[in-house]
Amino acid sequence: MPLFISHSEDTASRKLDGEMLVASFRTSTLFSLNEMATFIWELADGQTPLDEIVDRICREYDVDRETALQDATDLADKLARNGILERSESAFPTQKGGTSA
């Protein structure tokens, strides 16, 4: 079953010094994502399956696919628990998700 991920609507994100800062307006919390998490966040457009994101991680970084998939899945779970990422087994409607610049 494919998995799609998308920024939650009540978030905004900006990249600073290679790190993605994600503000949650719902919880008034600021998250700072590391390089790998930033890479995944930038591809979390609701249209790209997580499997494809993992393929791109493997091409970009020196990491085996099994590890990359586990890390990406764990990260998606964690960000979803914090309310800044949403997961779905089908693609999200376009235009969904928080803003980034």
Binding site: D10, A12, R14, L16, L21, A23, F25, T99, A101
Partner: peptide, 17 residues
Amino acid sequence: ETSLIERMFKTAVDFAS
């Protein structure tokens, strides 16, 4: 207002930059 909160977040990032 979410739009203003979002704007303030961007302002803070711009300032810190």
